[in-house]
Amino acid sequence: MADTITAATAALETQRRLLVDEYVRRAWNMWQSLTPQDWWNDAVTQGAAAYITQQQMAFVRAMRRLGISYADIMLRLVGTTPQGQIPEYVVVRDNTDPWKVALRPADAYRSLAVQHPDIRPRGWDGLDKRVQEAVNNWLDMARNQLQDNADTDGTLAQNRATASRYEASGIRRYRRVIHPELSKSGTCGLCVVAATNTFTRPDLMPMHNRCHCTVAPITESNDPGLKLNGDDLQKIYRAAAAASGKKGYSTSAADLTKLRVDVTSNSELGPILTRAQSETIADTESLGEWHMPDMQMTNAQMRRMYERASEFNRHYQILADSGKDIESFRYDGRNYTFKSGPHLKQAWDYVRSLLEYSRGWLGLAA
C-alpha cells in the first residue's frame, strides 16, 4: 500500500507543480506587460488583477479536481467507495475575495517603491546600476507575492476538496501526511510535529505558507498515513536538533521538547502552524473571524467583485467621456486614481470581462 500511495503522491505533486507554474507564468506575464507608470495607475493594476482573477479561479478549479482524484485513490486503498458531489469551485480565502488577492503583487511593488520616491523610471531599459537594483528588488517582491499566493491557494484548494470527498464518503478521521521529498530542505519541523496528530474535522488541519502536506483518511482498520509518517521519523530528530542549534540528528528529550508548535487563526486562510511563542506570525486577524469557505461565501465574494467591477466600470467610463487625464474617487474605504494611458482600454476590457463573469455566476440580468 505504501508504494501505491507514494506513487499517487508523486503524480499529484507533478500535476500540482505544473498547474502552479502555468498559473504563475500567465499571471506574471500580465504584470510584466506593464510599464513603470502602469504600476502606479489604479486603472491599469485593477484591470491586470481582474484578468488574473479569472485565471486564478480556473487554477483553483483544476486544483480541486486534482484533490478529488487523489482522494478517490486514497479512499479505494482503505476499502471505501468514493461518494458525494463536490462543488467545482469554492473560494479559498475568507474575508478577502480573489480580486483583492490578485492585486497584491502590485501592492508589494508599491510598498517597496514608495520608500524611494526619487526613483521613478520612465522605462525598464537603460537604467543605471543603483536604479536597476532597486527596480529589480521591487519586481522580485511582486513576483514572490504572486508565487506565495499561488502555492498557498493551490494547496488549500486541493486539500479542502480532498477532505470534502473524504467526508462525503463517510470518513471521520484524518491524518496529515508529510512529504519531505517535495521540498528542497525537507519537511519543516512544524509539519513533522503536527503529523503525529489526527483530526476529526478536515477544516481544522492547520497549514502554513508553501506547505506540501496532504490529507490521508483513517478507518477502523486502516491508517496509511501513520506508516508513511513513521518512515520519516528521522525528520523529527533532525528538526529537534535544528531547534537546539545543532547539526544532524537529536533524539534527546531536552531537544525534542524545544520543537513545539502552536496553531493560530489567520482570518483569510484559517488554522496556521507556527513555532510556539513565535514573534513572526503571518496573521490578518483585524480583517475578522475566519470561517471555512463554502458556496454561500463564494456567492458573497462573487457579489462583492460584481459590485466593485460595476463601480470601476462607471469610473472608466467617466474618465473616457470627460477627456481628463485623471479620475479620482473613493470606494469601499480606499482611494483610487485612474489615469489615462496606452493600456487603459485593455485594462477596462478586463474589468468588464470580470463584471460579465460575476454577473453570469450570480444569474443577474445584463
Rank of each mutant, 00 (worst) to 15 (best):
N229D: 13
G230H: 03
D231A: 04
D231S: 04
D232N: 12
D232K: 05
L233M: 10
L233C: 04
L233N: 11
K235V: 09
K235G: 11
K235P: 00
I236H: 14
I236V: 10
Y237E: 10
Y237V: 04
R238P: 00
R238A: 07
A240C: 15
A241F: 05
A241Q: 01
A241M: 09
A242Y: 11
A242S: 07
S244I: 12
S244C: 10
K246W: 03
K247F: 09
K247W: 04
G248N: 02
G248W: 02
Y249D: 07
Y249R: 02
Y249K: 02
S250H: 08
S250V: 11
S250A: 08
S250T: 10
T251R: 13
T251A: 12
S252Q: 13
A253P: 03
A253E: 14
A253K: 12
D255M: 03
K258D: 01
L259F: 09
L259R: 02
L259W: 01
D262F: 01
V263H: 01
N266H: 13
N266D: 15
S267L: 07
S267D: 01
S267R: 05
E268P: 03
L269W: 07
L269F: 11
I272W: 03
I272V: 10
I272Q: 07
L273W: 01
L273R: 00
T274V: 14
T274E: 03
R275A: 14
R275W: 15
R275L: 15
Q277P: 01
Q277H: 13
S278M: 08
S278K: 15
S278I: 12
S278Y: 00
S278E: 00
E279N: 07
E279G: 12
T280S: 04
T280Y: 11
I281F: 01
I281M: 02
A282C: 04
A282N: 08
D283W: 00
T284Q: 09
T284N: 13
T284C: 06
E285R: 13
E285P: 00
E285A: 14
S286G: 03
